[in-house]
């Protein structure tokens, strides 16, 4: 009788968050060939977006300064920036992600129209900025003001949803390393966004990835830029705190 009760307790209890020293980037779950593609800057197709982003960085919208006009050399001014995002924005009273920051810069300082989500332009400039922080440890969500939003993101991560009634945590905390159909379930550390997915044949944002996952459990995906989606991004970055940024990562 006792053993039955214990089994019941074990099977219903949530697996805890992944211990810090057991965390592994999605890179570790890939084939050797895909890892090699990511490591070689002349074979990594994400670098094409980085190069596009570099051109955009220097390209001034009509009647305004280019990004480089204020920020100068991205290699110095943008170093470490992506590791802090999503970050708390004073004016909005909540965290915003890197894509949102770039678009705010465009609308408020360059007086140019915002880039549409998931366009080649927005992904390229984001990839270029994030690439400047490659190898640096993630620090997003570690400040006091971000805490309530990290918690909101955590709640979303643990919430069962969709026709399959699954939470993010049930795959990525409880069953990482096992297989979902033919694919290995990674730990869901967003260390390399915007990243090149071979499946997408293009560079895509973390928000696109989240929407695909939510679609996969047959729930209604959140809109691009939705506050809940940014909270989830923030929680995932906090969950990966200390891990090195890899932008542009390549994923299968």
């Amino acid at each position: 009788m006792t053993s039955v009760v214990i089994c019941f307790l074990i099977s219903t209890s949530f697996a805890a968050e992944i211990p810090q020293d057991e965390r592994r980037s999605g890179t570790a779950f890939m084939t050797r060939e895909t890892q090699a593609m990511q490591e070689d800057d002349r074979a990594n197709p994400g670098m094409l977006a980085v190069l596009d982003g570099e051109a955009l960085w220097k390209d001034a919208p009509p009647g305004a300064k280019a990004c480089a006009g204020c920020h100068g050399e991205a290699a110095t001014s943008m170093k470490g920036v992506a590791a802090r995002y999503p970050t708390f924005d004073e004016a909005r009273g909540r965290p915003i992600d890197l894509e949102q920051r770039i678009n705010l810069c465009r609308t408020e300082h360059q007086h140019a129209p915002a880039f549409t989500w998931e366009t080649r332009e927005l992904n390229a400039i984001t990839a270029y900025v994030a690439n400047q922080s490659r190898g640096m440890p993630i620090t997003a969500g570690t400040d006091e003001r971000s805490r309530p939003f990290v918690e909101a993101g955590r709640a979303l991560f643990n919430k069962r949803q969709g026709q399959l009634d699954l939470s993010c945590a049930q795959c990525h905390d409880d069953n990482w390393g096992k297989r979902l159909a033919g694919s290995v379930i990674p730990q869901a550390h967003p260390t390399g966004y915007p990243e090149y997915r071979l499946e997408w044949q293009s560079t895509g944002s973390l928000q696109r990835r989240l929407r695909s996952c939510v679609f996969g459990v047959r729930a209604e995906p959140l809109g691009y830029g939705a506050p809940e989606q940014v909270d989830l991004e923030l929680y995932l970055m906090w969950r990966a705190r200390g891990m090195p940024l890899e932008t542009p990562a390549v994923r299968p």
Partner: peptide
């Protein structure tokens, strides 16, 4: 914006 990367 066509970009090419070449490794020779």
């Amino acid at each position: 914006m066509t970009q090419a990367l070449v490794n020779v």
